[in-house]
Design a protein around this nucleic acid. Sequence first.
DNA 1: TAGCGTTATATCTCTTAAGATATAACCCAT
DNA 2: ATGGGTTATATCTTAAGAGATATAACGCTA
Lengths: 259, 259
Amino acid sequence: MELSSPLTLEMLGKPFLLEKRIELLHAIAEHGSISKAAKAVPMSYKSAWEAVDTMNSLSPEPIVSRETGGKDGGGSTITSYGITLLENYALLKEEHTRFLSRLSALTDIESGTFKTIERLSLQISARNQIQAKVVSVQCENVNAKIHLKLKSGQVLVSVITKEAVENLQIEKGQIVTMIFKSSTVLLSDIHNEKSEENRLEGVISKIETDRENVKVQVDIGDHDTVVAVMPVTVLEKMELKIGSSVTATIKASDIMLGK
Amino acid sequence: MELSSPLTLEMLGKPFLLEKRIELLHAIAEHGSISKAAKAVPMSYKSAWEAVDTMNSLSPEPIVSRETGGKDGGGSTITSYGITLLENYALLKEEHTRFLSRLSALTDIESGTFKTIERLSLQISARNQIQAKVVSVQCENVNAKIHLKLKSGQVLVSVITKEAVENLQIEKGQIVTMIFKSSTVLLSDIHNEKSEENRLEGVISKIETDRENVKVQVDIGDHDTVVAVMPVTVLEKMELKIGSSVTATIKASDIMLGK
DNA sequence: TAGCGTTATATCTCTTAAGATATAACCCAT
DNA sequence: ATGGGTTATATCTTAAGAGATATAACGCTA
C-alpha cells in the first residue's frame, strides 16, 4: 500500500505547474527549443507548445521566451522569472515528498492504521534549525547521546531520550535537523578550549535590541547561522558588535532533533 | 496561485483509494446500495460498480459486501474492515490538507517565491508536545510573551522571539502545540504558590531508570501527560513513586511553540 | 534569393475513459 | 407465479485528450 500524490500549482483555478510541465521546462532549458525538448521528454510538439503557451498566459510574467526565425531557426529559453519558479517548485516538491514518505511510513499496511497520533508536519518557533549528519548514537536506557557533524565540520552533541531516538528512528549517517531556542545560546568573546561543552566559532552579522533583550545573529560558516537572545546588560559587558568573532555555546541537553 | 494535490492510496501499483471512491463508499454506507449511491454522488452505475469491484479485489479483505436478490432486491454495505479503512483515510487526508495549507501559505503569490527556507513538516524528538489555546500575545521588539491555556484550564507562559511569532503568525484564539524537552521539566513534591513560574499539578503514572537518569511520566489531566528526565540522585531525595502527586515546573523560555 | 530549423496553427485520427442502454440472474415479498 | 429492486455483465455511444500530419510565417545564413 503506497501513497501517491501529484503536486500541481494552480492559477485562477486552472492547472499551472505540474510534474510533466516542469519536466518539459527543464528539457527546454537544456536543449534551447520546444521541439527538441518535446522529443527529449518525450511528448508531441503540439502538447509541448500548448503547455508552454498556457503557462505563459497564466503567468503574470512570461516563463519561456520564444523566438521564431533567426539563427538556427529561432528557439526558446527559460526566463529568469521562470528559473526562480522552477527552483521554488523544486523546494515545494521536496518538502511534499518528504512529508509523504513520512506519512506513508506511519501507515500500517496490514491493518491500515496509524502507528502514532503525533502531529507530523509541525512548524516550530525555534530560530535555530541547522542540518547536521549523525556521527554516532550512544543509547542508555533512558537517555541517548548523539554526535552531530555540521556542514562546516564542527561536531556538536545532543542529548535526547532513548524513546525519541526509537521514535524518529535516528541512525548513524542520517541527516537530521538540530533545533534549539535562541535563548539557550550563550555567547562569549574568550577562547576557552578546556571545557567539554558544545562550542561554535563565528562572526556576528546582525544585532537587534529592545528595552530588555538583544538578538544577536552569528555566522558560523557554510551559510549556517546561529541566533542568540540575551538581556541587554550581558551584551554591554562584552562590548560585542557586528564583525566581532565570538564563541557560541549550547548545552547538549538544549539541542532537540527533528527529522 | 493555489496548491492542489489529490491523495491516492495505491495497492500493487494500481490506484486503490481515491477521493471519488471514498465519496462513493460513504454514499453506499448511507443509502445501502450501489445503485442509489451512484445516483447520489452522482456517477454512472457502471463506474460505481467497477470502482467497488476493483477496490474489493485489490483489498486483502472485502470492503463492500454485496448481495444480489432478496428483500428490496438486495443491496450493499460497508464491512467493518472498510469502515476502519475510511476512518484511517480521513486521518491521512486531514494531515495532508493541513500540510498543504501551510505549504501554500508559504508560497508568495506575486513573486512565486518562498517566504522561509525552514523545514516544514518536522517530526521532533521532544517528548512533551501538548495542545493549547493562545490566550494572549505580548510583543516586544525582540521577544514575545505568550499565554497559553491547556485543555485542563491551566495557564502557562511561553517566551519566544518576535520573529517566530510573525513567522508562525501566532494569534490569540489559535490552537498551537507547546513543545519542551523532558530535561527542562523540574519536579517537586512541595506546594509553592508564591513563585511566578509555570507550574502543572499532576500525578506520577510511570517511572523508568537507567544507570544515571530517570524518566518520570506525570499525568496532568484531560489525557495530557508531561515527561521529565533527571539524574537518579534527584529522584531519590524526593522519594517519588507512582501515584505521588507532584508539581512540574517549566521555565517560560524553555517552551517552544509549533503550529 | 534559397534553405534551414524553428514557432505557430489548423485539421484529422486515435485512444481511452466515462456515460447510456439493455438484459440476465438473483431472491424476497406478495 | 409474478413483480420489484438489486447486482452483474455486455454492448454501443459520446466526449475529451493526445498524437500525427501538414503548412504558413519568421528571420538568420550562405
